[in-house]
């Protein structure tokens, strides 16, 4: 009765590789291999914040995994995130604040979009431009 057709089954992946085995394959934002991030290295003061941040290529990989598992929106999120890895924490917080209701004028949002474009973050720039248009129509600009 239901027009059910054989559907794609979700990729049955093997159990995820424990971190230790994955170490040599993954690099941190700084470029440092994951498996060099040992407790001894931390104690010696050799591990920086950037050594414990995700690399944009890793986020692109996660985006592809999300796409394969029927969630293109999650993939899009990871691709926006990959762009944001290059920004300082303070800039990320600043843009979030600017996008909250009635925090920014239309022009200020346009400026943020241009700023993002200049930092090689076009997907986020497009998101901010889209927000500016809708905020103007819905009275959410400052």
């Amino acid at each position: 009765m239901n027009p059910f057709r054989p559907a794609t089954t979700e990729a049955a992946s093997p159990p995820s590789t424990p971190e230790v085995e994955k170490g040599s394959l993954t690099k941190a934002f700084s470029g440092r291999p994951l498996d060099s991030l040992t407790l001894d290295a931390v104690r010696a003061g050799e591990v920086t914040t950037d050594d414990l941040r995700i690399h944009p290529e890793t986020l692109e990989h996660q985006a592809q995994v999300a796409e394969q598992h029927a969630n293109p929106q999650l993939a899009a999120n990871f691709r926006r995130a990959a762009e944001l890895t290059a920004l300082d924490d303070a800039d990320v917080m600043r843009i979030y604040e600017a996008l909250r209701p009635r925090r920014s004028t239309f022009e200020e949002l346009e400026e943020i979009a241009a700023w993002l474009d200049a930092r090689n973050a076009p997907i986020n720039a497009a998101l901010v431009r889209e927000a500016a248009e809708v905020y103007r129509r819905r009275g959410l600009c400052r």
Partner: peptide
């Protein structure tokens, strides 16, 4: 949406 990406970016 931006906040969601901010978390993922870290």
């Amino acid at each position: 949406a931006f906040l969601t990406s901010a978390y993922a970016s870290r």
